[in-house]
Structures are given as C-alpha cells and as structure tokens.
C-alpha cells in the first residue's frame, strides 16, 4: 500500500498518521497542499487531523478548495482510497466528497476524550481487520464534530450501509445525528471519521484499538 498524507497549513496529526501507516506496513509520504499532483502510484490519500487554515470561515472550508484537492478528487473518481480523519472528514464534506456537514458540537465545547466506537461494517478496505459489531476504544479531539445531514440523506446512508462507525455505549461526544462517527462513499473507497484511530496504535500510547484500520489498509 502506497499512501500520501496531505499537509495543509494548520494540519497537526500528519506525523501520527504517517507513523500508524508505516508501523502497519504501508509506505507513506507527505504532500504539501499547494502541489497539484499526487506522487506516482499512490493507492491511498489521507487528509489528516488538525486545524487547516485556523478553521477560518468553516472548519475544512478553505482546505477543501486547496490546489491539491483537484488531484485528490480525480484520485477518488478513479476509485482510489481516500481517508479523512477529523479535520480531514470536515474537508471531505466541504469538498462534497462525502455527504452532510460537521457542525459545532452540541455542547459548544471542544471535546478531548476517549469514546467507544461500534464498527458497523467490516466489509470496507478500512475496516476489514475488525469484526462487524465490534466495539473499540478511540480518542476524539474536536470542536466541530456534530454530524448533520437531512433526514433523507441519513436514511439513504443507513439504507446503503454507509455508516461505518457509530458512537457506542452513550459516548456520543458532540450531538451527531444517529450517533454517526464515520461514513463512507457508496463504493466504500472514501471514508471520513471524527475519532482518531491513528492515536491508538501502540501499547506505549495507551492501546492498539486503532491499529486494525491501518493493517486493513496495508492489506487492501
């Protein structure tokens, strides 16, 4: 698996995700947002967490229109894998690559804590090394993670099996509709999620519940 991690001004989890990818057996490098092409032969593009452009205008709004995003969009249209974590998820919705929007947390405060996540689907390239229905631990750290979409879109996401992660055991930290923590595209190749599995990939950092995502990707 050859991965490229896009770095925007204000990204801050790119090294975490690079480490998670390489620990799990992928080859990974970074790409600056002002580039217009992705490295040759990239299978997976990752939009990492952080506060791109200081969250100005709306979280992810300006990054979604950065020069590299045209190449990222073409990569997704070709059926390439695309993962957006936290700010990366916000960027994917702002770019229209995933439906819905991430709004201000219902409690209005920044949340930085551990939640429980139910893995709803194990038949995606991102979750193949989990069991469907498995509940894992995962950190969250965000201010705008309140997933919103209109009822028709939510019904469609559920009906098409595009809800991949859901906050479990009453740990929804942000008021997200239907406890949605992560969704994928209809073809299962684009995934966005608010929690940070890349921050739980080594025992020394508190656990390895996030590691199967990167092992799934390495084997995809």
């Amino acid at each position: 698996m050859k991965a490229a991690v896009v770095v925007f001004p204000g990204s801050n989890r790119e090294r975490d995700v690079l480490r998670a990818l390489t620990l799990s057996g992928s080859e990974a490098s970074t790409v600056w947002h002002a580039e217009t092409v992705l490295p040759e032969g990239v299978d997976l593009v990752v939009l990492p967490g952080g506060f791109s452009y200081g969250d100005y205008l709306r979280s992810g709004a300006i990054a979604a229109r950065a020069p590299i995003m045209a190449a990222v969009r073409r990569h997704a249209q070709r059926g390439g894998l695309l993962l957006g974590i936290c700010n990366g998820f916000q960027i994917l919705t702002e770019a229209g690559l995933l439906p819905g929007a991430l709004m201000r947390n219902a409690g209005l405060t920044f949340v930085c804590r551990e939640v429980k996540l139910a893995v709803e689907r194990a038949d995606t390239p991102f979750t193949a090394h989990y069991q469907a229905g498995q509940v894992i631990r995962c950190p969250v750290a965000h201010h705008d993670g309140n997933y919103f979409a209109d009822t028709a879109t939510l019904d469609r996401l559920e009906g098409e099996g595009q809800v991949v992660f859901r906050y479990a055991e009453g740990t929804n930290p942000n008021g997200s509709a239907r406890d949605i923590a992560g969704i994928c595209s209809a073809n299962r190749k684009v995934l966005g999620l608010m929690p940070h599995p890349e921050n739980l990939v080594e025992e020394i950092a508190g656990g390895t519940d996030g590691r199967p995502m990167f092992e799934s990707l390495a084997a995809a």
Binding site: R58, P99, G100, A101, F148, A149
Partner: peptide, 9 residues
C-alpha cells in the same frame, strides 16, 4: 456557492 456558504446547511 463555491466557498462563502456551505449550502448543505
């Protein structure tokens, strides 16, 4: 349409 508003919300 392109930037200033997110017409989803």
């Amino acid at each position: 349409e392109k930037l200033l508003a997110n017409t989803v919300i």
